[in-house]
Design a protein around this nucleic acid. Structure first.
Lengths: 124, 124
DNA sequence: AATATTGTACTATATAAATATTACACTAAT
DNA sequence: ATTAGTGTAATATTTATATAGTACAATATT
């Protein structure tokens, strides 16, 4: 299962954020082969976006054989293993880290401040 | 200083690519507080885009307090940090880290992934 | 004071992306 | 057969992006 989240400030189209989160979710193991995804309507409501936006994301992943859809039944994670190049994974992580460290800097926080806060919270 | 480059095939709007490269520059230390950026006209010519495209990028970063602009003088990497009361600082840092980690998690990254990335970058 | 350079503002145009709405088609369960 | 829930399709509308052109406003330099 994956907790989908859209970031309007990311500058990345919503449907692409959905695609990426599914793709990375599969690659990281939090989404497994055969698992059913939320229905297009359910996810649209959850993310407060249009039905077509979710459909577009699912559709593109189905074309790439990453998802399998059965009309009337649902959308599922396909069996084809997807391996995201280390380079791409690293870039995504960097992008996220840059986005937030830059914001943190503008509030006067340092990289150490962020690291300490994260460690305090997640490494008890 | 930063070497700006636009990729028309990236699928990311030009103004967003400019924003990303400035943010990356700040986060990576190649752009430092107080440093002057190219003028809107100079960068527009250099990147072969319209004046308005560069303006839009600078404007958005100014709104987010990442850049500081002075009409007639230029655009600079922000040096004045956003002032927040001491007692709210901790909460602000928590908020930033929470949003940060939530987004990272949605892409399948762990807290350790984030911490390692930050350490790799800032604690050499 | 005059000039050049900087950011800003505004209107207009064209195209692409995203959303809204409605209806249809397939499947499973009753 | 009927119903509820699923994905699909199509059209129209709105919003975002990028460009072009022109003019204005603030600052630094001469």
């Amino acid at each position: 299962m994956v907790q989908f989240i859209l970031d309007p400030k990311a500058g990345v189209p919503f449907y692409r954020q959905i695609i990426d989160q599914i793709k990375f979710g599969i690659a990281s193991g939090s989404l497994t082969a055969g698992e059913q995804l939320p229905t297009v309507r359910a996810l649209a409501v959850e993310l407060k976006v249009n039905l077509n936006t979710v459909t577009k994301a699912y559709k593109e992943l189905e074309i790439r054989n990453i998802l399998e859809t059965q009309q009337g039944t649902g959308t599922f994670i396909g069996k084809t293993v997807i391996k995201i190049p280390e380079k791409e994974k690293s870039k995504k992580l960097q992008d996220i880290c840059n986005e937030f460290s830059t914001i943190a800097f503008s509030y006067g926080f340092s990289a150490d401040d962020i690291i300490n806060q994260l460690q305090k919270k997640y490494e008890k």
